[in-house]
Structures are given as structure tokens and as C-alpha cells.
Design a protein around this nucleic acid. Structure first.
Length: 646
DNA sequence: TATTAGGGTTTG
């Protein structure tokens, strides 16, 4: 006697264990080559093509899939749903879908599946060995052992069949004229051209081999930041978006990450003879070939945790992401641009032949740092107010000056400070304001370029960072810091190298290096920059900033600009100032004195006050106003109220 | 309540 066993039944003598009974009877799936017209079925399939949901001519959004399975049959599926959430969350071809309650219908001599009453769809990644996580907005999803086995089998089958070895995804660097391609990119700017066209400016961190066409748009029609630097490097591309795609394009904001499907690379018409042809991209009207545009979720844009320093893109950043999150083209985006690296701070050591003009902006050729001048880099707050004479104002504007006939620089007349010899200056008790007459025995910096100093600083910071942490441990990403109409965010990075922080700041905008103290996030020592803002570094003042234990919760801060970020974290930002350091001599003694008022102007007179070919005795005298003060117990001297004699 | 779309060698 024969017993019939449905698919999935098991057990001895046809008896099913109670625990398995419910699961086995739950759902029956039909192979795609066994669909019968008129029946309502459940199926599994691998997606070979899809159209994102678009507005139908009826009341619903509609999406179209083509799926296949081990039977080799390919079946078109039509899904109608009121909202975008009703539709499958498809990432790419190769995704696996589970369709419940779809009706098999006949159309053009083929069987199609259409969503019917009570239908549902669940999506899974098609990547072999990746976690089996259902992607759906539906709250009622049960995944059993059968589902897991089925998904694994389909993944393996698709891999064996090499169904998806050819991807239409590409990057700007590999686009060729006349191609149709899919592009993952970031929106930089947007301009509405007319009722049928929107112009989007995007980049993906790679450089196009063909010159990219640019368009001139009235500035008041443009939404987004200036991208001139990227434009010059051929990193930005324009996309003309037409007709039905405007519904999505209109709501886009600069900074968003986008996925385009079936873009067309068009050769723009030559503007001048002999000019190379420029590329521009069109997203044509309609939905054929899956042509569409969608915003990518921010969650897809996570820093790739396995990056080596050498692999960190210099200005790509935004595209450091898990390749599996958005497809293989993101992985290909993780490359260092081949040139233009001289402006990168960590490239400094490799470019010792830099000209002065090429000294990186963020190294600060004329900047002082705490380690460069010891304790004397002070802000006004560092000075005891009682010690500062009212009529001096260490940081005040230049007062009127008196004429003297003996020197190149002249001192103020707004107070009646006593005239001191340098020996008297050194033996006086600060605070003390006095007039002196002295010669320049020596001074720093003697050269415009401070590359040497810059390198010292670079090494110093590098070693400090290496001591603090090994590699990327954590990146805290603050959504609430996202700027409207901007792709800038504030991020905290722990335990990484200086190079990575610099690179991150270049791509993310603002980065605060942090460390862990008692398992809590804390700022670095103030000898490190408090914040990296693009190519620049800003330091906090150790003395004026609040100690770590009084710091506000990092994630409670909602600042909008650099000063507010610092204020919120109770950090007093230091200012960069050009500083001259003199060794003054009047025959009775020497004093090291700093000058930052008018320092740039006075520097130009140094060949006069310090002629390199003349001994000290033949150098001109200078009348100076000198202020003696203390910082952390050390006596410091500063030249104040002094300017160049006209 | 039924309807919608039904991929296909594209083009501003």
C-alpha cells in the first residue's frame, strides 16, 4: 500500500512529530516551472531584474520583478501596494524573495505572478554565507529551518550558475561614452532646470577618465555647496534627471547618497574645435530597464573597519562602506587618487622639496604650537587680569607711537613706563611694564618656511597617536549633527593614526579624536588637536577648557558650527597667531621676548634690525615697550605697543 | 471596488 507524502513531511511510517507538524504544514512552495494559471501560490526565487516601485496609472505603486529558481524557469512578478513600505526592499540583482499568496496568471503566453489578497513579500540577501535576515516592513515574518535551507540552496545555486557575475554597477572612473550603467554616488548640489528636468551634481570619490561636462546655472537656483576644488579634479559629474524621476529628485538634499539605475553616459557637444569631448549623464524618462533613482539609507555608509592607512581614500571618505551593503562598486571606490597628494598632511615627509607656497595649509608654516614655544602660547584668559595694566592691553590695538631718531621700531607714548636696562628687567618682579632700548641678537623664525618645524610637529603627533591606540576601534556617528543642505557631519574617532583622522576630516568635514577613559568617551590630551575641520586643525587650551570630568555628554551636544561645538564640549579653542621670538641684548643682559602684534610687518624689517653680515655692536637700537608677566610660574616677556617706524 | 502592469538592445 502506497502512502502519499507531501513535500517536507517526515518521520517514521508517515507519522510526523508534533513539534514539526505545525511548521511542515505551514507553507507549501511551488517550483517556478510548476505554476498553474488561476492558482494562488507561494514561491521562492532569485531576483534577476527589478524595477523600483513607481506610480501606476491606478491607485497603487507598482513594482516589477523577474525571478528564477533551480528549475530554470523565469517568471515576472507584479506587485501592487499602496506605500513604498509595502514593496520588497530590494538591494540588487541576486537578492532572494519569498512571495506568499501570489496569483498565477497568463499574459502573452507566459505565466506571471501577481500580488493577490493577503499577499506578502520578504527579501533576503543573495550573498552566500551572509546572515539570513529578512528585509521587510511587515512585522509578521517567521523564518524557520525550511526557509534557511531554501535560502542557502538558492544562494549556492545562483553562485554555481554564475547568474550575477556581470554587474551593471560602475564608478565614475570606469564610465565610458554611451554606456548604460548603475551609479552609487553622493549628491553635492541640485538645481531645478524646468518642470521636466532637474540637474544633479554628484561624485563618487573616483576620477572620471573623460572630462566631465559642466553646466552654468543661476546661483539662486542652486542648492548645495561650492565644489570648485572637486570640479577642478574632474571628480564631479552632472546628471540630468527627467520627467517621472523628478518626483524623487525634487526631495533630494545635497549630502544624500543615491543609487541611479540605467544612467546613460552621453557625449556633450563640442564647444570648441580640438576640445576633448565631455561626458554628461542622463536619467531618461520612463522605467524601462529598471531606470530609476533612489536615496540610499545612511546606514549603508559605514566606515570600512578593515582599512589600512594606505587604503584610506584622501577625499573619498563618504564611500568607505561595507561593500556588501550597497554592492561591489563601493568596494571599488576604496582607492587612493593617484596624484594631488602633496596637500595631504601625511604626505609632507615624502615631499621635502616643497616650495614655501606648497606648505600644507593645515600644518601652519607660521603657526606656533604649545610644544614650539613652551608655556608662552597664552590667551588673554591665561593672564591674571590684575597683572595686566589697563593702558597696555597685551592684545590691544596698536596705540599711537612716539618719534625717536635712534631706532627702526618705536614704542608707545600712552603710558609713562620707566626706562629699564635688560639687567633691571630681569631683576624686576612681574608684572612689569617698561621701556627698553636693545638690539636684536637673534630671532626666530628666520625663514618664511617652517617646514622643519612642521615635520617635527608631524612626527610628534604621529608618535602620540600611535601610543594612544592601535587601530580603528570605534566610530561614533552623530546623526543629529547632520547639517541641512550639507554632507558635513561631526564624528568621533578613537584609536587610529593621524593619517586616518586627517583623511576622515577631509571627507567627513569634522572629526574629533577621542579616547576611552574608564570605558567612557573622552577628549584627547590638548596637545592633540581638539577637532579636525577639513584640512585644518584646531587646538583646545588646556588651561581655559574644563576638565574631562566636567565635560557634557558628547551625545547631548547639538552644535551647528565649530565654535558652538567647542563651547558645548567646554573647550576653549586656541587661535593660531604668527609669532616672532627675539633674543634682545642691550649690553647689560639678554631677554627672550615674544612679539605677535604686527609681527608680520615687523618680520619684514628683520634685515634692517638684524643684518646678517654685521656684528651685534653695529646693529641698530630699537626702542621697545616690554611687558613682563608670569605663566605657570615662569616669567615671560612680550613686546607690546610697538610698531615699525614709518 | 476595480484598476494599476505585464522588463527587453533604450537615447533630451
Amino acid at each position: 500500500m502506497l502512502s502519499t507524502k507531501g513535500p517536507g513531511t517526515s518521520g517514521l511510517d508517515g507519522k510526523v512529530p508534533p513539534s514539526a507538524k505545525r511548521t511542515d504544514k505551514q507553507v507549501q512552495y511551488v517550483p517556478l516551472n510548476e505554476l498553474k494559471v488561476g492558482t494562488v501560490v507561494n514561491v521562492y526565487g532569485v531576483v534577476t531584474f527589478f524595477k523600483l516601485p513607481f506610480s501606476s496609472k491606478g491607485t497603487d505603486l507598482v513594482s516589477t520583478l523577474k525571478i528564477t529558481d533551480e528549475s530554470g524557469a523565469k517568471v515576472t512578478c507584479i506587485i501592487f501596494g499602496k506605500t513604498i513600505e509595502d514593496h520588497p526592499s530590494l538591494k540588487e540583482k541576486g537578492d532572494i524573495v519569498r512571495l506568499h499568496r501570489f496569483k498565477a496568471e497568463s499574459f502573452n503566453d507566459s505565466v506571471t505572478l501577481k500580488s493577490s489578497f493577503g499577499w506578502s513579500v520578504v527579501t533576503f540577501s543573495g550573498v552566500n554565507n551572509s546572515p539570513i535576515v529578512p528585509l521587510t516592513s511587515s512585522k509578521k515574518v517567521s523564518i524557520g529551518e525550511f526557509d534557511e535551507r531554501k535560502i542557502c540552496a538558492l544562494r549556492q545555486w545562483a553562485a554555481d550558475e554564475s547568474l550575477f557575475c556581470q554587474s551593471s554597477k560602475t564608478t565614475l572612473s570606469s564610465v565610458r561614452p554611451l554606456m548604460f550603467f548603475d551609479l552609487t554616488c553622493q549628491l553635492l548640489a541640485k538645481a531645478v532646470v524646468d518642470s521636466t528636468c532637474v540637474l544633479l551634481k554628484v561624485w563618487d570619490g573616483t576620477r572620471c577618465e573623460y572630462p566631465l561636462q559642466s553646466y552654468t546655472v543661476a546661483s539662486d537656483a542652486v542648492e548645495g555647496e561650492d565644489t570648485e576644488a572637486k570640479d577642478r579634479r574632474n571628480l564631479t559629474a552632472y546628471i540630468l534627471v527627467y520627467d517621472n524621476h523628478l518626483e524623487v529628485a525634487r526631495d533630494l538634499k545635497p549630502g544624500m547618497f543615491l543609487q541611479f539605475y540605467n544612467l546613460r553616459a552621453v557625449l556633450a557637444k563640442d564647444l570648441l574645435p580640438n576640445e576633448p569631448q565631455h561626458l554628461t549623464f542622463h536619467l531618461h524618462s520612463g522605467t524601462s530597464f529598471g531606470r530609476s533613482l533612489r536615496r540610499l539609507p545612511d546606514e549603508a555608509l559605514e566606515q570600512h573597519k578593515d582599512l589600512n592607512d594606505d587604503e584610506v581614500p584622501e577625499d573619498v571618505g563618504a564611500f568607505c562602506t561595507r561593500p556588501e551593503a550597497v554592492g561591489p562598486s563601493y568596494g571599488r571606490g576604496l582607492r587612493r587618487l593617484p596624484d594631488d597628494s602633496t596637500h595631504e598632511p601625511w604626505a609632507l615627509e615624502q615631499h621635502k622639496d616643497l616650495n614655501d607656497d606648497e606648505v600644507p595649509e593645515d600644518v601652519g608654516a607660521f603657526c606656533t604650537r604649545p610644544e614650539a614655544v613652551g608655556q608662552v602660547l597664552v590667551k588673554q584668559q591665561d593672564l591674571n587680569k590684575d597683572e595686566v595694566p589697563k593702558d597696555v592691553g597685551v592684545f590691544c590695538r596698536q596705540p599711537e607711537a612716539v618719534e625717536t631718531d635712534s631706532c627702526t621700531v618705536r614704542a608707545c607714548k600712552q603710558h609713562h613706563a620707566q626706562h629699564f636696562t635688560l639687567e633691571q628687567v630681569r631683576s624686576s618682579t612681574p608684572p612689569q611694564l617698561c621701556h627698553i632700548r636693545a638690539r636684536v641678537k637673534d630671532y626666530q623664525p628666520q625663514q618664511l618656511s617652517q617646514k622643519g618645524q612642521a615635520r617635527v610637529k608631524q612626527r610628534f603627533l604621529n608618535s602620540m597617536w600611535e601610543a594612544d591606540g592601535s587601530r580603528f576601534d570605534q566610530i561614533h556617528r552623530k546623526r543629529q549633527f547632520v547639517f541641512m543642505n550639507s554632507h558635513e557631519e561631526l564624528k568621533f574617532i578613537q584609536g587610529t593614526s593621524l593619517g586616518v583622522v586627517c583623511a576622515s576630516a577631509r571627507c567627513w568635514g569634522r572629526v574629533i579624536p577621542v579616547r576611552a577613559v574608564n570605558e567612557k568617551m573622552a577628549l584627547m590630551d590638548f596637545f592633540a588637536p581638539f577637532i579636525f575641520y577639513r584640512g585644518k586643525r584646531f587646538y583646545g587650551c588646556q588651561k581655559c577648557s574644563l576638565p574631562e570630568e566636567e565635560r557634557r555628554d558628547f551625545f547631548a551636544v547639538e552644535p551647528l558650527d565649530l565654535l558652538k561645538i567647542a563651547e558645548a564640549l567646554r573647550v576653549q579653542l586656541m587661535e593660531y597667531r604668527f609669532l616672532l621670538q627675539f633674543e634682545l641684548d642691550d649690553g647689560t643682559g639678554t631677554v627672550d621676548a615674544l612679539l605677535w602684534e604686527n609681527a608680520d610687518k615687523i618680520r619684514k624689517t628683520m634685515d634692517t634690525v638684524h643684518p646678517p653680515d654685521k656684528p651685534l655692536e653695529e646693529r641698530p637700537w630699537m626702542d621697545l615697550c616690554l611687558f613682563a608677566y608670569t605663566v605657570e610660574g615662569n616669567v615671560c616677556y612680550q613686546i607690546v605697543n610697538t610698531k615699525v617706524k614709518e
